[in-house]
Structures are given as C-alpha cells and as structure tokens.
Simulated assay, not measured.
Amino acid sequence: MALFLLVFVVCLLIFGSVIALLLLSGTPRYRTEPRQLLELIDRALQSQVNETEWNTIIGYPIRHDETLDGIRRRAQRLVDVHGNHERVNRGKPLLDATGQEELRALRDHLARHLALREARDSGE
C-alpha cells in the first residue's frame, strides 16, 4: 500500500507540474516587423518569393502597428487584383506590370515610414 501511495504522489506531482507549466506559459506570438515586410516586398519585386511565403506573411494580421497593417492589406489587395496566381511556380513574377509598379510605390512608402520611425527612435 505504501508503494502505491508513493507512486500515486509522484505521478500526481509530475502531472500537476506539467499542467501548471502549460497554464503559466503564454501563447507564442508572431510579430511582423517593418524590416521583415520590406525585405519580403523587395524579394517579391525581384521575383524571388514564392506564393506560399507571400501568403504566409501577408495573410497574417499585424495588430501592433496600424500603419504596417494598412501596408499589408494594400499588398494583399495588389496580389488579389494584379497577381499571377499559380504562375509563380513556373518562374513568372508574382504580379503583372501594373501590380509591380504599385508594389514598388508601396515599398517606397514603407521605406519612408521605416526611416521616420528609426529617426524618431534614435532621437528619443
């Protein structure tokens, strides 16, 4: 009987500690930074990004920065309107010529936003 109680207490401690650890650990969060978004757009303009990678980053909402989320939504709309769906796998660019121009303008806007943010952060 003593052996049973010992095994029961040890198992209870192990299960209890695992449950406590799971309850206390937070949910992992993915946080898209402006530099990551800029690099993705640069690679899309150079036709070096596949559709899966694009959709993974662009399809995920950016809740910590409304300006970045607006840029993300505009980029997503560009692909919806001007995208060459399923042609990326055959070596074609992600966007047609009009979409490439609009994405370049969006990239310039993001670069200016990033420069302003870095200047503001270094001034503080």
Rank of each mutant, 00 (worst) to 15 (best):
L38V: 01
P61V: 00
W54Q: 09
L6C: 12
L94Y: 12
G59H: 03
L22S: 09
A115G: 08
D42L: 06
T27E: 14
L106C: 13
L114T: 00
G83C: 09
Q46C: 04
E86L: 11
S25P: 02
L45H: 04
L40G: 11
I14V: 14
I41V: 10
Q46V: 06
V18G: 07
L116I: 08
Q100T: 15
R112K: 08
Q100F: 06
Y60Q: 06
E66K: 01
H113V: 00
L13K: 06
G91F: 05
R72I: 13
R43G: 14
P61R: 01
E124N: 06
L95A: 08
D108V: 05
D80R: 05
D69L: 02
V18Q: 08
V10R: 06
R43W: 09
W54S: 12
L94C: 12
L5I: 05
N55R: 05
L23V: 10
N89I: 15
R72F: 06
G70D: 01
R73E: 02
H85G: 14
R31V: 15
A115C: 09
G70W: 02
K92P: 01
H113A: 01
N55V: 10
A115T: 14
S122R: 07
M1I: 05
R120T: 15
A105I: 01
L13S: 15
A2Q: 05
L5C: 11
T32L: 08
G123C: 06
T98P: 02
A111M: 03
L106D: 00
E51V: 07
L110A: 01
N84S: 07
